[in-house]
């Protein structure tokens, strides 16, 4: 297990360095931030001074090397625009994004697994077909469109929910969260549903497919032949088997929900990292863009690791290895 963890760590480090290089090349190609930062009336001398101050006069590879050295000691550069460490900017916004992603995933899981089970157990019934039709809609409607419709209905017409911002927050262990206040809940409801919709559809399909396959297995028939109540056959025998792929996908999707909260955050003006990223791209604030992407990749790596551990805990064939088979 330790050797495995060390190998994983090495691989992750390699991925991070490779990622940072690609991102660096990418932002280098976007354009020259000096044009946006200095006064358009500024003369050549002032322009050159600004370029040198940001370190942009050095050759590309040297800039990258300076960045890598900084990154090794936890310094991902300073924001050109705000002149504060880029990492601080991101860590400041990250709780809002993580909370939004987390609430969205909870909604997707709490609805997706039961609905998928029902659709899988009764695929030909009206309710089973209805659930499937809903999940097809959830898949195919664009997130921004659904977001706008939600705002039109619940904010503009009904006036029930606020259309932007985060509302009142409450600090838990120093981290501000919305879901503990009524105002915060009202603010997070629409963006979370908006963000959850795609994952909800995905989980419905995944659970349905897994259930349909599992109920045909001999072990389910055997469980029924034992005279077990239906609740135990479904809740233990079927669910425990289909949970293995579902947990894997949930874990992997958690990363992408954080990364792709960008659209939802923009629509609902949710003060998270997604909105920060869009602003930074518009202002060519390179260090923030690079730092954002590195933080997201790191999150992905950590989540993947946790998923692998969870997966092996759920599946005894992985946990104990096949070598133990005896005759």
């Amino acid at each position: 297990m330790l050797a495995y963890a060390i190998r994983r760590f090495g691989q992750s480090l390699f991925v991070l360095v490779l990622m940072s290089f690609i991102v660096f090349v990418g932002v280098y190609a976007i354009g020259n931030p000096v044009e946006l930062l200095v006064n358009p009336q500024a003369d050549e001398v002032e322009r050159a001074r600004a370029t040198a101050a940001l370190g942009l006069d050095k050759p590309f590879l040297e800039q990258y090397w300076v960045f890598l050295k900084g990154a090794a000691s936890g310094d991902l550069g300073r924001s050109f625009v705000y002149n504060v460490p880029a990492l601080d900017l991101i860590l400041d916004k990250l709780p809002a994004t993580i909370e939004l992603a987390f609430v969205a995933m909870v909604i997707a899981i709490a609805l997706g697994i039961p609905l998928g089970l029902v659709a899988g157990l009764k695929p030909d019934s009206a309710i089973g077909r209805g659930i499937m039709a809903g999940s097809i809609l959830g898949f195919s409607l664009p997130t921004f469109w659904v977001g706008l419709v939600l705002i039109m209905v619940f904010s503009v017409q009904l006036g029930w929910l606020p259309s932007n911002g985060r509302g009142d927050t409450l600090a838990v262990a120093g981290i501000p969260v919305s879901f503990l206040t009524a105002d915060g809940l009202a603010h997070i409801a629409m963006p979370a549903v908006n963000l959850a919709l795609f994952k909800l559809s995905l989980l419905i399909r995944l659970t349905r497919a897994g259930t349909r396959e599992a109920v045909l297995q001999d072990y389910v028939k055997f469980a029924r032949a034992k005279g077990l109540p239906q609740s135990r056959v479904i809740g233990v025998h079927v669910l425990k088997n289909i949970l293995i792929p579902i947990v894997t996908v949930i874990g992997l999707e958690l990363g992408s929900v954080i990364a792709f909260a960008i659209v939802t955050e923009s629509i609902f003006a949710w003060p998270g990292t997604g909105k920060l990223l869009i602003d930074s791209i518009n202002q060519l604030d390179r260090p923030v863009i690079v730092a954002y992407l590195l933080v997201i990749v790191t999150l992905f790596i950590v989540i993947n690791f946790v998923v692998d551990v969870l997966y092996s805990m759920l599946d005894p064939r992985v946990r104990l290895g096949g070598a133990a088979a005896s005759h």
Partner: peptide
Amino acid sequence: DPMMTLNPVL
């Protein structure tokens, strides 16, 4: 088929 009758995760 005894390979299929017992639930693999229990």
